[in-house]
């Protein structure tokens, strides 16, 4: 049970961190100049990802993570009732 839970957790991490890498290092830095040929409003697209878009994606990623992990916790019925060690 526990092993499956951990494996599912790692899968979520890998997918979300790939998106994290893509929107910041990918679109904001490596492919930024290439994306600059496209525009949204007055923004060049690469510039927008570097100074705005990546930040919005980061926020969304954490909330997607919270949602997926809560679902996973429920599936494995791990109630994290507080067990204090102090």
């Amino acid at each position: 049970m526990h092993k499956d839970y951990w494996r599912a957790n790692l899968k979520i991490l890998i997918i979300l961190l790939s998106i994290w890498f893509m929107v910041s290092f990918g679109f904001g830095i490596i492919f930024s100049d290439f994306l600059d040929q496209y525009h949204i409003g007055g923004f060049k697209l690469g510039f927008w990802f570097a100074q705005q878009g990546s930040i919005y994606f980061f926020v969304a990623l954490i909330f997607v993570y919270v949602y997926l992990m809560n679902k996973l916790d429920k599936k494995y019925k791990n109630h994290d009732d507080e067990e204090d060690k102090h």
Binding site: W20, Q51, L61, I62, Y65
Partner: peptide, 20 residues
């Protein structure tokens, strides 16, 4: 545009913090 390093660097770290 070079200033993006601060914008992405100081927010993207929270994704690592939250996930890892």
């Amino acid at each position: 545009k070079d200033g993006s390093v601060y914008l992405m660097g100081w927010t993207g770290g929270y994704v690592l913090l939250a996930l890892l």
